[in-house]
């Protein structure tokens, strides 16, 4: 059996014992209990990450801060990679609890050299794209990778007490449309897309129902991973809620029932 090199990449790792592992270059998941050293390593990451975030701390939930901190280990000149980017969505203004406008967040993974078309990743319901699709981002090689944060998810605006927000499906479509406009502006040569469950449905709804030649022709390869074209039923939702609670509400509990990052710091 090959020796596995384990890296602490996910804030949930040391709570669940699930680690991202690399074996001779291919990525997978193994399960084991994290060591004290690894736990301390993550907490150190988090402390350093708060320094990098600065005022943006107040814009993110504690759970998101943990996730970002773990995903982007702050060292050297990583500041520009750490922070999510924000795209204003004027048509969704007022949907946020904190702000009068609405900002859609997206994370970019930038390789050292870019040789291929950019890759867009559209995550599914109750997922956090930069973490759930980290494996893909790592394997994208010489592609610039964009990972969207759907409204109500990740660092995007939305109703955050209940982490997944969609008053109507048009909210997602509006966000998708503006995101694609931005992508086309920066990458008129076109992109490839990987979309998972709800991400696939939003994209097909946006491009098929609401948009024509300009944006459909933007996409060279469209990969749909278990797209939400038909569901087995809603019984699975409780499982998703469970996962969602885990990734957001419960991580907030880690901050002693406070949603403010400041409370993570001793007085």
């Amino acid at each position: 059996m090959q020796k596995q090199k384990v890296s602490l990449t996910n804030p949930l790792d040391w709570a669940t014992g699930r680690f991202s592992a690399s074996t001779s270059g291919s990525w997978g998941i193994i399960e084991r209990t994290p060591t004290e050293e690894e736990k301390q390593k993550f907490l150190n990451y988090f402390q350093n990450y708060l320094k990098l975030l600065g005022p943006l701390q107040n814009e993110l939930l504690t759970s998101d801060l943990y996730i970002h901190a773990a995903l982007h280990q702050p060292s050297g000149n990583t500041e520009t990679k750490v922070l999510p980017h924000f795209l204003p969505i004027p048509s969704l203004a007022g949907r946020s609890q904190k702000r009068s406008d609405f900002r859609l967040a997206y994370t970019t993974f930038t390789p050292q050299t870019i040789k291929h078309r950019p890759l867009l990743i559209l995550h599914g319901y109750a997922e956090y794209g930069p973490v759930n699709f980290e494996l893909i981002a790592r394997q994208a090689g010489s592609r610039l990778v964009y990972v969207i944060h759907w409204p109500g998810h990740g660092a995007s605006d939305g109703i955050r007490d209940i982490p997944f927000y969609a008053e109507t499906s048009s909210d997602y479509v509006e966000a998708c449309l503006e995101f694609l406009k931005m992508i086309q502006h920066h990458h008129p040569e076109g992109v490839d897309v990987i979309a998972h469950i709800m991400g696939g449905a939003i994209l097909l709804d946006t491009l098929g129902t609401h948009m024509g030649q300009s944006y459909q022709s933007l996409i060279h390869h469209l990969v749909l991973s278990a797209p939400m074209l038909a569901l087995k039923g809603m019984g699975w939702l409780s499982e998703v809620l469970y996962s969602n609670t885990f990734t957001r509400k419960l991580l907030a509990l880690m901050a002693r029932n406070s949603r403010k990052p400041k409370s993570l710091i001793s007085p």
Binding site: A166, E167, L231, L237
Partner: peptide, 23 residues
Amino acid sequence: VSDHLSNSESDWILAANAMMTRI
């Protein structure tokens, strides 16, 4: 694990059904 669906989650179900119907 709670099996209660909040209003927001019900909204999501309606949103999902609307998208799938159109697709």
